[in-house]
Design a protein around this nucleic acid. Structure first.
Lengths: 224, 224
DNA sequence: CTTATATTCAATTATTTAATTGAATGCTTG
DNA sequence: CAAGCATTCAATTAAATAATTGAATATAAG
């Protein structure tokens, strides 16, 4: 290979490695997951991931420098968001490769689900078909701002913290499917457990909005 | 969030970051690109990326530890290969995010193509359709072992080094489309330039076999 | 203009990563 | 069994990365 081709390759991979480096930190991967649910402020993100605001901010600078997130000022707050759907896809692929290839990921995940009584696999694909056909009542049990940022069309927003109050409004003889942020989020596990305790017929759809989008389906923003 | 949820998240992202760290090095990204064309020995890879065998081997250990590549011994040689298609997809998504989001990637790439007289964009999608309909003669100008590892069905293997000898066998009045490893490989550029100089009507399809696979199309292995 | 709040920056320290070099290991051949 | 070849390992050195802490900056409110 000529030396100018060599130089070109070196430059190109140096640049692409910026994205790899952005993904090389556990904290930054969590930041990206948090942002995949919708835009947030630094303080809110820092609380979610249990890190100092300064440390969170530094990691956000690295992600922004790699152009995988963007920011805009809103008064004293800075709102961060994922740069685009392709970045969302990148996070999804990395997680799927991790789940498929790293035994440790599966071990950690199964321990997590077993502790919460959610290890039993439902038929996720059949459930998805029934959701799409409108055969079940779909609950989004994430916080309201994440629902507003984007949700499965037809889903009802019932944040976990409001489930007790709103449970009585749910049709008692219609099957319920609850989802939240994704396979590793406990909200839908908790919601399904509570609903079934009260005699509802609830099932957890273990994916999240990002997975729905990755499947090519449209989402709804705003209140409906 | 309860402390056991926090611990779970910390463990999970620690594990997923192993893959991010694997991708955080320019050399390892190039190794993955090289392996996306087919399995190779350490020495052959080291030559391709212009690194020492020891350094190449160390990076390969990191990639293997992250489970994105696999190895098998073949006498004194060790053959390395990508772990599966999902890893191929991960590399593809990372490159697309880089190309879409990092101005520097586009700058480096355009300079590279301009220097080689290949900056003019052809309509890649129309070309693909014509390839799929069998309307053109398709040449794979990569080395033979990469052709054997996997190629577009119906493509003829004409490694760049053999183009002069084999050119006379090509139908003179049928349009030719040449491809190689991907947008940043010079073989198809060189091949198209030479063919057009000799009066053939040749166009470059700038993607590679990995992109063909990412589009969901089947590839052919072996000699046909 | 001053104070409060949110966020970023800079310096420091500790840890991790990367390239080099020479030794060690595994397989093949004579 | 010894020599050759391919590959990996280990130690060393230098560079890069990460968390903490305190200072600096930007915006809003009184």
């Amino acid at each position: 290979m000529t030396s100018s081709n060599r130089q070109f390759k070196d430059s190109l991979y140096e640049q692409l490695a910026r994205i790899g480096k952005a993904l090389a930190s556990p904290i930054r991967l969590e930041l990206l997951d948090v942002l995949s649910q919708g835009p947030r402020t630094v303080e809110s993100i820092a609380n979610e991931v249990n890190q100092s605001v300064a440390n969170t901010s530094q990691h956000l600078q690295i992600l922004r420098s790699a152009r995988v997130i963007e920011s805009e000022r809103n008064g004293v707050n800075i709102i961060y968001r994922l740069a685009d759907q392709e970045v969302l896809g990148l996070c999804g692929v990395l997680r799927r490769v991790g789940e498929a290839r790293l035994l440790e990921v599966r071990q950690v995940t199964e321990a997590f689900l077993r502790e919460r009584g959610a290890l039993e696999r439902t038929d996720n694909e059949t459930l998805l078909e029934r959701v799409r056909r409108g055969e079940v009542t779909v609950l989004d049990v994430r916080p309201t701002d994440e629902f507003l940022a984007g949700h499965i069309p037809g889903a009802i927003s019932v944040p976990l913290s409001e489930l007790e109050q709103k449970m009585a409004d749910l049709p008692p003889d219609r099957e319920i499917v609850a989802y939240c942020r994704g396979p590793l989020c406990v909200m839908s596990i908790e919601a399904v457990n509570r609903l079934n305790e009260k005699g509802y017929q609830a099932t957890r759809w273990e994916e999240g909005v990002a997975d729905w989008v990755a499947r090519g389906f449209a989402i709804q923003t705003g209140a409906v």
